[in-house]
């Protein structure tokens, strides 16, 4: 009788564990699917083209994946922007492809890893969506600058933007303080 009771307890524990595992996977399922979709969108959308600095490789410039999505490197202090002669040329960009100069001044690609101090760590999902929709830092601050394609991104659905946010929150944090943009004429 006691043996049978023990067997029943074991079965009950096993069923509970299995049930808990199923429930856990059910709960873990949607975010993971969302993160995967976000990864697909960030990769296909070429976010890394500007937010991951380029380094010189054996076959030419290539993204430095050790600094993936961390923006313009803090250590790369840019010299003054060379002056372009009058003519149809309008802008210049750095070899890292993270510093951009044009009529708007100089812009630096942002750190979009989830680092709390220097990246998107403090941003909520809503802050991120507002930023893209309004074209402003944190949705309310200074304007986003070229070449950030926010007008195109603003046309994404909420679920697409949520997926991108979920993926960006899942990538490794990198502490890298990107310099503030420089206004035209500012030194």
């Amino acid at each position: 009788m006691k043996f049978a009771k023990t067997i029943w307890v074991i079965i009950l524990v096993m069923v509970s564990v299995a049930l808990a595992g199923t429930l856990a996977s059910l709960f873990a399922g949607p975010p993971s699917k969302m993160v995967k979709r976000g990864e697909y969108m960030v990769t296909a959308g070429g976010c890394g083209d500007c937010h991951t600095p380029m380094k010189m490789g054996s076959a030419g410039p290539e993204p430095d994946m050790s600094l993936s999505l961390s923006g313009h490197p803090e250590s790369l202090v840019m010299p003054p922007v060379p002056k372009l002669p009058p003519g149809p040329w309008m802008g210049i960009f750095s070899a890292s492809m993270t510093a951009w100069s044009g009529p708007w001044g100089v812009s630096f690609s942002a750190n979009i890893t989830p680092d709390k101090t220097t990246g998107l760590g403090m941003w909520t999902e809503k802050t991120f969506i507002d930023a893209i929709r309004n074209g402003r830092i944190q949705g309310k601050g200074r304007p986003m600058l070229p070449p950030m394609p926010f007008p195109a991104m603003a046309r994404l659905t909420d679920s697409d933007l949520k997926a991108i946010y979920a993926y960006l929150k899942s990538v490794p944090k990198i502490s890298n303080k990107v310099p503030a943009p420089v206004a035209p004429g500012e030194k």
């Binding site: 200074r142 420089v182 206004a183």
Partner: peptide
Amino acid sequence: NPYQQMPPL
């Protein structure tokens, strides 16, 4: 300075 000023707009 358009990137420093407050309010920003």
